[in-house]
Design a protein around this nucleic acid. Structure first.
Lengths: 341, 341
DNA sequence: GAAAGCATTCAAAGCGCTTTGAGGCGAAGT
DNA sequence: ACTTCGCCTCAAAGCGCTTTGAATGCTTTC
């Protein structure tokens, strides 16, 4: 069922039908009702490709899905996406996913944009001096960065969590508890958020006259297995750390297991604070020793990104805030305690 | 940059350019090279909407993303999706996600199909007597069901894991070890896969002259917290089960914690077999007591679904197998052992 | 030397929608 | 009675692509 057929059915022109359906004022209310009813009954849906061609608006957001062996099926990505989806649904937007290998992300973005499939898009998994930023700015389609990119002037629209602040605060809290030997089990080193979290810890330790030793920092894909592996390695040191920061509750899952297997008590022998993305799957309060965390909802971030992108598309004149920096919340539970003597 | 501009640039007609780019034979090889070079240099990408309108092919697969509070950000969904993405990338397909609340899934599918955004789509999270099947069959666009629907004749294309067989086999293995008191921590009861897993267990127990007690079956969203909760409940029974089957390693995560907290030893006091979807995030062999599992890769299933859908679009004449039933593999690790006396 | 065949290119139609500019028709104003 | 205006509706153009059917210029064939 298309416009033409519907117009013939009703004995009206395509123009009138289109206007009636899209809520234009210059159509008789009675006519509109008749059209609406017929559209309902016949299950008519405007062809999106045609509409897009005519208006230039696609009614969809784009995202490039990282698909290297590690990052795919990343629960963090899924959580973000679900927030995005939620907001898209509310505004009848679709979202178009274009899978790409990390080396080809730039090309994928160009393809996505040039092919006219989307009205706006977002970038994630930012790295330092990320080349995608320059490209995105040259592309004349609204975009938002989830995260930031160290080494690039912040003249692009972004939404980020104050990772440096969060990890700094967490480190200071542990310092106040008397801890002196710190470790950080971090995300992959080239990712911006990981770099900032590390900076946060380093700065806090620096202010206390301490340093974060190179050997005490792990940069790794955030999985359970890696959390275990790196924690186990840390515990084999002659003087193992008493305070550990984890970039994700998923990493903490493995780390906690390693701690337990070493016969250590979480919260007394060793203290741990993890960053909690508020994953549905894994709640820090449900760990056998409830986890102290810095937290910020990824899903909420996804929702907000979608909200801003959709606004940028539907109300291009309204100028949105460019930068948004969310602060994470430090919640103390049982996994932290005074440093052992 | 569009076709017209490119044609003017090269002094050729749009027809010739289009044919050169799409590999038609009636174009001079020299001309083709010239066109290809220019397209490369200008970064020309055909507008997908226009192409779709002209050919009727969208070059994308559709999926309706469940977005009820529970299912969203489901790691199982993400894992499947990553397989799908992988295959889509290989064939230059996009995929279009349309979020929808469960009650409105039928409508969402209709919208997705009628709007012409996709060439093919798949259905998941099937329930018994699922009404979406009837609708999909009436819709004249290729589709595949991931899973099946009890109570509906199997005259639709599907790919499913032999859930009944897998859980039957797991139960029989535990029966052979002498276990007599069984429990099942299952996915939500209305989902087809959960129903079949239960059937598998019931049948195996039935053949051994036992029954699965109603109280020993939990039907729940597959999260860590729920695994813990339901396992804890089971352990409070006067005669707790000695053999537990879990529908996911995520549930097992919580269940194992409850077992440990109860002071019980996995593999001797209590045996557990979980279904492993081969999640990147969580490997059964990395549990502190490595988990015995029935396993089947969700990612591989996603890949295969994409492969079949794309084939259905690009080679409509080739008739594909309609039904595909994958069997899960039973792997015995340390979480199972003889029943305690 | 005319007809036929081949290789290459082109103009134009059409996909289904939105939107522009114009037209028809009563009611109100002069 | 004639213009003016508002309200409603319409025909037609255009979005960027693919594809049909025709045209062009050569070479080959009888």
């Amino acid at each position: 069922m298309n416009l033409k057929q519907l117009s013939e059915l009703l004995g009206l022109s395509q123009t009138t039908i289109s206007r009636a359906l899209n809520g234009y004022p210059e159509v008789n209310e009675e006519t509109r009702q008749r059209v609406l009813k017929a559209a309902q009954e016949t299950g008519y849906r405007p062809n999106r490709a045609a509409r897009r061609l005519a208006t230039g608006k696609a009614g969809s957001l784009g995202l490039v899905m990282p698909i290297s062996d590690g990052q795919s099926a990343d629960i963090h990505f899924a959580e973000f996406q679900s927030g995005l989806a939620d907001e898209c649904l509310r505004h009848e937007f679709h979202f178009v996913i274009m899978p790409a290998h990390p080396q080809q992300e730039e090309q994928a973005i160009r393809e996505l944009v040039n092919s006219g499939s989307v009205d706006a898009y977002y970038l994630a998994y930012m790295r330092a001096r990320d080349p995608r930023l320059k490209m995105a700015k040259s592309l004349a389609l609204p975009f938002i960065v989830h995260g930031r990119s160290l080494g690039v002037a912040e003249d692009y629209p972004y939404l980020d969590v104050d990772n440096e602040g969060a990890f700094g605060q967490a480190a200071r809290y542990l310092l106040d508890l008397g801890h002196r030997r710190f470790a950080l089990i971090n995300g992959l080193a080239d990712l911006d958020f990981a770099a900032r979290r590390r900076m946060g810890v380093e700065r806090a330790l620096g202010q206390a006259g301490l340093r974060l030793e190179e050997d005490c920092v792990s940069s790794t894909l955030m999985t359970d297995a890696n959390g275990y592996r790196h924690m186990a390695r840390l515990l084999q040191r002659p003087e193992p750390p008493t305070a550990v920061l984890c970039a994700s509750t998923v990493l903490a899952l493995g780390a906690v297991r390693a701690i337990r297997e070493a016969g250590l008590q979480l919260g007394s022998d060793i203290s741990l604070i993890a960053h909690d993305d508020d994953l549905m799957l894994l709640k820090p309060e449900h760990f056998s020793t409830p986890l102290s965390t810095t937290s910020s909802s990824l899903r909420e971030a996804g929702r907000r990104v979608a909200e801003r992108l959709i606004a940028a598309v539907t109300e291009p004149e309204a100028d949105m805030p460019t930068a948004e920096l969310w602060s994470a919340e430090l919640t103390i539970r049982a996994s932290t305690g005074p440093a052992p003597c």
